[in-house]
Write a protein that binds this DNA or RNA. Structure first.
Lengths: 239, 239
DNA sequence: GTCTATACAACGATAGAC
DNA sequence: GTCTATCGTTGTATAGAC
């Protein structure tokens, strides 16, 4: 396992295409749709999701009307409602599938990776690459979390906490191994999470400066290693 | 000048009360209001802003109706419209005055502070203390920036860039003084900004863990100093 | 499976009474 | 200076034609 060195390889390895996401969406949530044929359903779901993410991320989900959405997706209002139960339902659909996808990738990214230092590098790169490929999904999930019902909102919070806990555990194991200094690793994981989120929240800023995701990953990794470096003992190189 | 050691003193020194903000709002923007008397206007503006920030930060500005808002503020729809020209106008009012206030405080916080190390500490504490006191304003400005018109949106972006540039210049001067290592200070300032924003975006998380703003400030300062420490030369202590 | 046509509630905004 | 009453528009959602 692990994470490829470049975004290009990461994208290939995980094949996170919109089509793939929509196919799974149809197979899993066919119950709430009035359309039977998979081929046509997936095609339309792609258009709907594409339009939703574009409009919602530009003007906000609440400010986006379903008339606007259906026009942009190339469907009528009636046609749109063959795929969703309500507007709220649409937001929930996006959040749920985006979350599931992220958890699936991040959950296995450390398989076979030995040593806290390499694990940290791998997890950081995986998170950044994932949010780069699925930028619109991540941005939507962050900005529109308040429109979720109580139940789905709770799951979104838990997912956030799991990601942070993943980083915290890596840092703690590095601490026990003597690689990292004595520090509050809960806090260190929170700071790390904040800079990881900045990548998809402000990607336009970084792009305007010519910073790509691989440079950003290197910067974040260096930040964490310098911040947590154990100065007391000589370290064996592990990478 | 400088920044007091505790949030308590910071709050007193700058007197950032809602009443003060509303008084200035009335004096500066009386043109767009149909009410003449300052005393009653300030009272009602306080109720309107209080209700707007509470509702918008809970469910989103676009999802908040003016009926809901007027009810919560204890005014009728007609009464509400004596203070605003439109819903969009209300968002713009909040963003503009919040921004002006933040710039005024941050713009002079370094006056009389000598040395990059102490300047960095001061600026970090000022930013965190300010966002702690005006949390609702900062959160609103961040989450609802997309609802602004093109003109005000541009000013919001410039304000962001100015803040980041303030930190970048401090770091660069520290670099020239040999206190900080050779590093991309534009990037370092961006990372710093991301963790500063995390404080008001996720304050609930930190509060649940019992982390207060002063602890958070110490953590962020330590992060920056360790991350940028110059290992090549012996450093004179400056603080 | 998708469309047109329509229901009806809620919205932002305003006029005029007090 | 604030209220009640009401305007026209737009919103989400659905029924029935094709």
């Amino acid at each position: 396992m692990g994470v490829p060195a470049t975004l290009r390889d990461f994208r290939r390895q995980h094949s996170l295409s919109l089509q793939g996401i929509c196919r799974e969406m149809f197979r899993e949530d066919a119950g709430r749709m009035q359309v039977q044929g998979e081929a046509v359903a997936v095609q339309n779901l792609m258009k709907i999701l594409d339009a939703t993410l574009a409009l919602a991320n530009q003007k906000g989900f609440a400010a986006m009307s379903l008339r606007e959405l259906s026009a942009r997706a190339g469907l009528s209002m009636g046609g749109l409602y063959a795929y969703i139960r309500s507007k709220e339902d649409l937001a929930e659909l996006i959040q749920r599938h985006g979350r599931a996808l992220a958890q699936r990738v991040l959950g296995h990214v450390l398989d076979g990776i030995q040593g806290p230092r390499e694990q940290l590098r791998t997890a950081i790169r995986a998170h950044l690459f994932l949010s780069e490929v699925l930028r619109a999904w991540f941005y939507f999930s962050y900005m529109e979390a308040k429109h979720l019902g109580a139940e789905e909102r709770q799951k979104a919070i838990e997912s956030e906490q799991q990601t942070e806990a993943l980083f915290r555990r890596i840092l703690e194991s590095g601490q026990q191994a003597g690689i990292y200094r004595d520090a509050d690793m809960q806090m260190a994981a929170s700071l790390l999470k904040a800079v990881l989120q900045d990548w998809y929240l402000k990607r336009g800023k970084y792009r305007a400066r010519g910073v790509d995701v691989e440079q950003y990953a290197d910067t974040v990794i260096e930040m964490m290693e310098r911040m947590l470096k154990n100065e007391e003992m000589k370290q064996d190189r592990q990478d």
